[in-house]
Amino acid sequence: MQATTRRAGQTPLEAIRGDRGSAALFGYLFVAPLILWLVITIALPLVYSVFLSFTDIGVVGTEGAFIGLDNYRRIVAEPEFRAAFVRSLVWAFGGGLVQIVLAFAAALTLNQAFRGQRFARTWIILSWIVPTIVIAIMWRWMLNATFGIVNYLITHLGLSAVPIDFLGTPQWAMPTLVLINAWRWFPFLALLILAGLQTIPEEYYQAAQIDGAGPVKRFFSITLPLLQPVLYVTGLIGTLWAFNIFDLIWLMTQGGPVSATETLPVLIYDRAFNGFALGEASTISVLLALFLLIYSVVFIRFVPAGETEGGVL
C-alpha cells in the first residue's frame, strides 16, 4: 500500500482522516470485498428467486411457465399463508419479548460483582453455543409425554393430573417452541446487554441516587436510554433472525401438529419440497423478505438509534 503523504497546511490527522477523497477511496476499497461477497451469495440468488416467483414451476428441477402475478394473488388470499404469517409474528415478537425480559434479568444480575462472576458470564451462554440438533434431541426427550422428565415433574408436583404432550398438542406446541427458542437465545442477548451496561458510568447512578431516584426510576431513566444502541441493533437484527429461524422448528415439530408451529420459513420449505410448488414457495419467500424489508426501513426511520461512537449502527 502506498504511504499517505501530507500536503502542505494539513494537520497529520487531516492527512489521514480529513482527506475525504483518499478516505472515500480506501473506504470503498476496504468494504468492497464484503459487499461483493454478499452480492454474489445473496443478491444473485435473490434475483433468481424473484424470477421463480413469477412461474408455476412445481418440482425442483422441472421447467415452469411464466404466469405473472398469479402466485402472488393466490398466496395472499390463501388461509395457510395468512395463518403462517400470524404465527411468524407471534414467534418473532412474542418470543422476542420473552427473550428481552429474561436477558435483562440475566444481564442485570451478571453486572453485579460477585464471586464466580466470570464463570457465570462464560457459561450462561452454553445453550447458545450448542448446535440446534442437540437442543432438539435434548428437549424432545425431556418433553416426551411418556418418559420425559418434565412430565414426570409436572404430574408428581401436582401441576397436572395427566402428562402434557407439549409438542403434540396444537395449543402447547407453539408456546413450548417459543420458550425453547427463548431459552436458547436469551444468554446471547444478555451478554450484548451486559456489554451495554458496562458503558454506563457508575457516577450516573450515584447522582441519581443522591437525587432520591429509586431502582425502578434509575432503570428507566438511566439504564434503558443508555442501552439504546444495543437494544436498537438487537431489536432490528434479532427480529430478522427470529423471523428466519427454520432449523429448530423443523427438527422439533416439522411445523406440526396440525400446522400449529408452521411459521413462514417452515411453510416455504414444505411448499417447495413436499408440496412440489417451487414457484409458490419462492413467492412466499419474496413476500416474507418484502415484509422484513419494510419492517427494517420503518424501524431505522422511526426508532432512535441512540448515541454511539463510530456511527449510527
Binding site: P45, I237, L240, F246, L264, I268, S285
Partner: peptide, 8 residues
Amino acid sequence: YVFPGVLL
C-alpha cells in the same frame, strides 16, 4: 438478514 435462509 432480511432474506430468509430458506429463500437462498
